Simulated assay, not measured.
Amino acid sequence: MKNIVFASIIILLAISCGSHNTTQFASSGSTNDTIKIANDSIGYEVIIIEPGFNSYINSIARPRGYYSQNYLENKNQLWVREWNSRVNQPFRYDPNLYEMQIDYNAGTDYGYEVNYLLYNYLVYFQNKYKQSLFGFVPHN
């Protein structure tokens, strides 16, 4: 569990110009994966740092297009709300697992790729750490 200190998901709202999506996959060894998605037109950046997530997204996760964007957005809204609730309860939930809040606004169209990666990160997180966010049953 100490490795989770290095693993986090950060959604930062940044102010910048432009109108393109950028997805970068960078692996810095078997202990740390980093995936970054940015869309300058609406000013957001997502950075996912989690050991094994890059391998999961490329080999185990359902392929892009399997779920609709609406499905992904609905799941993300429920799970992010529960995640953020747990961040605010460090004596009830492990603060090494729930380090920081996820800034996810239901009224913002983040596009398919952000919703896909966030959804799959939350599935991966729940399975890896045997957590159950609202309405999820982890696989063994």
Rank of each mutant, 00 (worst) to 15 (best):
D109P: 01
P138H: 05
G43E: 06
Y129N: 15
L12M: 09
S8P: 01
H20S: 15
P90C: 08
L12K: 12
N70S: 15
N120K: 06
C17S: 14
V87K: 00
Q69F: 01
S27V: 00
P51N: 09
I60W: 01
Y67D: 06
M100V: 10
F125N: 03
N58D: 11
V137D: 09
H20F: 03
K128D: 02
D103W: 05
I48M: 12
M1S: 15
H139S: 13
Y44A: 02
Y56A: 04
M1W: 07
Y116C: 06
Y119L: 08
N70Y: 09
I48N: 06
W83V: 03
Q131T: 13
N127A: 06
L117C: 01
G65L: 07
R92L: 14
D103K: 10
S28Y: 10
N54C: 11
E50A: 14
L117G: 00
A106V: 13
T23I: 14
G52F: 08
K75S: 02
K128Y: 00
D103C: 06
L133M: 02
Y104F: 15
F53N: 07
F134Q: 13
P63L: 13
I42F: 08
N88M: 01
N96D: 12
W83E: 04
S28R: 14
P90Q: 09
L72R: 11
N115T: 09
G65F: 07
S8R: 11
N96F: 13
G43P: 08
S132V: 03
Q126D: 07
A61D: 08
Q126I: 08
I102S: 00
V87N: 02
I9W: 05
K36A: 03
F53V: 04
D94T: 07
S55F: 09
P90D: 05
S19R: 11
Q131S: 05
D33V: 08
Q77I: 14
P138I: 04
I15S: 12
E99R: 11
L72N: 11
G65P: 05
G135Y: 01
N39V: 02
N54Q: 13
Y121D: 06
Y129V: 06
G43Y: 10
Y44F: 15
N140H: 09
F125H: 08
G107I: 03
N84M: 04
E73F: 02
G135P: 06
E45P: 02
E82K: 07
I37C: 10
Y110D: 00
I37W: 03
A38H: 03
E113K: 04
F134I: 09
G52S: 07
G43R: 05
S59T: 15
N88C: 01
Y124N: 04
G18R: 01
H139V: 12
A61T: 04
S8C: 04
N70Q: 14
V46P: 02
N88Q: 10
T108S: 07
K36V: 10
N84Y: 05
G52L: 09
I102M: 09
I4G: 02
Y119W: 11
Y124R: 07
L117I: 07
Q24R: 11
Y119T: 09
I49G: 00
M1E: 13
A38K: 14
L133F: 10
F91R: 11
V80I: 15
D94N: 15
N32Y: 11
D109V: 00
G65T: 06
I47Y: 05
T108P: 01
V123H: 03
Y98R: 04
A7N: 12
Y98F: 15
F91W: 08
